[in-house]
């Protein structure tokens, strides 16, 4: 759905957060987070206190986008999994349902095999949650029961943003 913005509702956010926590625990990860393909952070779980998650999200999306560009040039549809190995920490990045990116940061307390296995299981859950969200967005559009915070915005509201 390239022409519609992502919308996140309370109910699905809780489900996403719960699945990220589960993955964090079962994969023995340091951090797990979910990013929109356009670089917006959706949710994160784990040792995020000293992490600039906003920047990480943007760079992750750039990374996936660049790799996707390479894939096309090589005649592949996409490279759906990326793995970066560091001295201490490793990053496992995977594309889910062509819409969101799941990132797992882990160290020697875990292993690539375990992370891959747990990511695969969680991916199925995330696919379901996001298809539910998209259905909900479509329904809201049809109903026009516009809960959008933009509906009643005035120029004054916007001017105030810039102080």
């Amino acid at each position: 759905m390239p022409d519609s913005g992502l919308v996140m509702y309370e109910e699905e956010f809780k489900q996403i957060d719960a699945e990220l926590s589960k993955l964090h625990q079962l994969a023995n990860a340091k951090v797990t987070f979910l990013v929109d393909k356009n670089g917006q952070l959706i949710a994160s779980v784990g040792e995020t206190q000293n992490l600039d998650t906003t920047s990480l999200a943007s760079l992750t999306a750039g990374n996936i986008a660049a790799t996707g560009g390479m894939a096309k040039l090589l005649g592949e549809k996409e490279f759906s999994i990326l793995f970066h190995e560091g001295e201490k920490d490793n990053v496992h990045i995977s594309l889910i349902g062509d819409r969101v990116i799941l990132v797992v940061v882990f160290d020697q307390r875990s292993s690539l095999g375990l992370v891959r296995l747990r990511v695969k299981k969680s991916s199925e859950v995330f696919v379901q949650i996001f298809s539910k969200i998209m259905d909900k967005v479509d329904k809201e559009k049809e109903n026009k029961s516009s809960r959008s915070p933009f509906a009643e915005i005035t120029e004054d509201d916007i001017d105030r943003l810039f102080g």
Binding site: G5, L6, M8, E10, N38, Q40, P149
Partner: peptide, 14 residues
């Protein structure tokens, strides 16, 4: 595209 997060009460634009 914009990202409206009702849970975190945030709107993100690019």
């Amino acid at each position: 595209m914009s990202f409206i997060n009702y849970s975190a009460r945030e709107i993100n634009c690019k």
